[in-house]
Nucleic acid binder design. Structure first.
Lengths: 245, 245
DNA sequence: CGGTCACTTGATCGTCTTCAATACCAGTGG
DNA sequence: CCACTGGTATTGAAGACGATCAAGTGACCG
């Protein structure tokens, strides 16, 4: 009933001097490349901050002065064309590292969907960290490489897949989210609107809605609520997503 | 995969132990992160090879056993769907580093367009190099970051731009290729076929042809030969590419 | 020459978009 | 309790952009 009252509050002996030592997301982020004994270095480099839903904490085109590590909430990353057309290039959650671009300006806007908490590193302080901890650089390279692979997969989706295949791909990717082992979930919640999905898949709201309805009438999925998805026929969905028919 | 790989010593009849010392593309690749005094280490880790036009030296889905540094020629990188639909995720030339994916299999196929020469690093030997030369890891991270930015730009193109905007974007990007300073070339050659351009822009051969013809009849470009492009009105082309009208 | 290959051009088709109406749901205040 | 409101989702009808199908051109080459 009252989680806060029943949960034992673990206090760190060092107090507020070393917040990174008590950071719950360290294990799932690039920060775990810093040895525990050196966490003070990390704490000194990071500045925490937060962003309310609908507000952006990175703005496309603005000078890229800092890097971010998401410690709470979720955000969408998007690029805009002058006339308002929008392409969402990714959804990010806890542990995600942002702003890797070496260029002088941010390549995308990052807007909070749920309240976002983050750690902020200035270019200079991150550079110093990386100089002193090559393991962190290794970790960042691994992260960037994986994102590059994901981006190429998304290019295939945007360039060559049909609306049906895009939606199926998206749903199956969501089903796999946060599931470490093989089995994707059969029931999950979509934390974004139809508009967000559309701008992520290069389609329109109406096409998303129609395609979901079609998949539902075919018995492949169920949609108990607008944001709830139940996959009834995983194999068929995977086949549509992979275009392997 | 009908490419040929040999140890550099074999290709190096005059017996020098470090062919990397005479490598003309070192300056423009990640290899310049290795100090000149340690080039023997680099030479020992690399195995040179080459691929004839039309043949692939990386195959999507195959176990990712090595990394490649292009030292000559150009190649296209693509992903395939089971039914043959193809998405080209990039064109690469001299100095480009390939295979960064941390996953166990290659995410794309790399096929030579012009005769390709490359240096090949096994996972283990590259790892050893990176452990010993953090500067190289830094360089790779910078490269990966920049590619990520480019990939996101391509997502915007594939997801939200019209055929006309895509072709204009592509042409202006080609005009800027290999030009360090601000001014893009007004005349250049396209090293790829219409089919390749189509699969890069998520369109068809016919649409590429029609769109180029339209741009020509409008006086924005000239097409002296199928592979020659002369930009007559750069400003207008940039505006179309950026959708800023 | 006949053959192939790449490109161009034309006619038709289909998928997805656009425009528009309606349904839904939560929050608010009468 | 119920109308009002604004944001979100669904559904329908019409339209457009790019795909597909098909024919024709030109270059290169054995």
């Amino acid at each position: 009933m009252n989680a806060i009252a029943t949960r034992p509050l673990v206090l760190d002996p060092d107090g507020a001097a070393d917040p990174c030592a008590r950071c719950g997301v360290r294990a799932s982020s690039v920060c775990d490349a810093i040895p525990t004994s050196d966490l003070a270095r990390l704490s000194a480099a990071a500045v925490t901050g937060h962003a309310a839903p609908g507000s952006s904490f990175i703005d496309e085109g603005e000078p890229a002065t800092a890097f971010f590590n998401i410690t709470g909430g979720t955000a969408k990353l998007y690029k805009l064309l002058p006339d308002g057309r929008r392409q969402i290039v990714g959804f990010v959650g806890v542990g995600h590292f942002l702003g890797l671009a070496v260029s002088d300006t941010y390549a995308f806007t990052a807007e909070a969907m749920e309240p976002v908490k983050y750690c902020r590193f200035s270019r200079a302080s991150l550079r110093r960290l990386l100089d002193d901890f090559p393991a962190m650089e290794k970790k960042l390279l691994a992260v960037a490489s994986n994102e590059l692979v994901a981006a190429q997969e998304q290019m295939l989706l945007l360039g060559r897949k049909t609306a049906r295949e895009r939606v199926a791909s998206f749903l199956m990717a969501q089903a796999r989210l946060g599931v470490a082992c093989m089995a994707p979930r059969s029931h999950f919640t979509l934390p974004m609107t139809r508009g967000d999905i559309a701008d992520y898949l290069g389609l329109t709201i109406e096409t998303i809605s129609r395609t979901l309805t079609k998949l539902r009438t075919e018995g492949l999925i169920e949609i108990p609520g607008a944001t709830d998805i139940v996959v009834k026929n995983r194999l068929a969905m995977e086949r549509i997503a992979d275009a392997s028919e």
